[in-house]
Computed example of a mutant assay.
Amino acid sequence: MDRPTLDELLEAVGEFLEKELLPHVADPRLRFQTLVALSALGIARRELALGEALAEEDRRELGTLLGREAPLGELLRTLAAKIREGQAPPGTFAFLKAHVARKLKVASPKYLERYP
C-alpha cells in the first residue's frame, strides 16, 4: 500500500489546522471557517472508514424490509414512495431509526453519544 494513505493525509491536514493554525486565528469569521473545515475533515475520515459498511447494512436491512434486492438508492426511493402512499411496511420505523443512526455515525457521532 502506498503511503501516506488517504486517511493519513486527511489526519495530517486536520492536525495542522487544529494545532498549528487555529491557535493563531483571531478573526472570528476565519476561526469559524477553520472549525467548519476541521469538521468536514472528520466527516470525510469517518466516511472513508465506515461509509461502505454502513451503506451495505442499509442495503441489506432495507432489502429485507422490502423483500427484494436492488441498489440502496433504488430501495430508499421505493420506501419513500411507499411511505407517501401510506403503505409503509411493518418495521419501517425501526429501519429508519437505524438508518439515521448510521448516518450520524459519519456526520456527527457525538450526537449519538448524547442522545442514544
Rank of each mutant, 00 (worst) to 15 (best):
R3E: 09
D7M: 08
L10C: 10
A12K: 02
A12D: 12
G14E: 07
F16T: 06
E18K: 05
E20T: 12
L22Y: 00
L22T: 10
H24D: 11
P28G: 11
P28N: 04
R29N: 03
L30P: 02
R31G: 12
F32R: 03
F32N: 02
F32E: 05
Q33T: 15
Q33M: 14
T34G: 06
L35P: 02
L38F: 04
S39G: 14
A40C: 12
A40F: 04
A44S: 14
R45L: 13
L54C: 10
E56N: 13
E57I: 13
R60D: 08
E61T: 15
L62E: 03
T64P: 00
T64F: 08
L66H: 02
L66D: 11
G67R: 00
E69W: 02
A70S: 11
E74K: 06
L75P: 05
R77F: 04
R77E: 14
A81I: 08
A81M: 09
K82G: 01
K82W: 04
R84Q: 12
R84E: 14
R84H: 11
R84P: 07
Q87R: 12
Q87K: 10
G91D: 07
A94H: 05
A94V: 10
A98E: 08
A98V: 10
H99M: 07
V100G: 06
K103R: 08
L104G: 07
V106L: 03
A107S: 09
S108N: 12
K110T: 09
E113I: 09
E113W: 00
R114K: 13
R114Q: 10
P116W: 00
P116V: 14
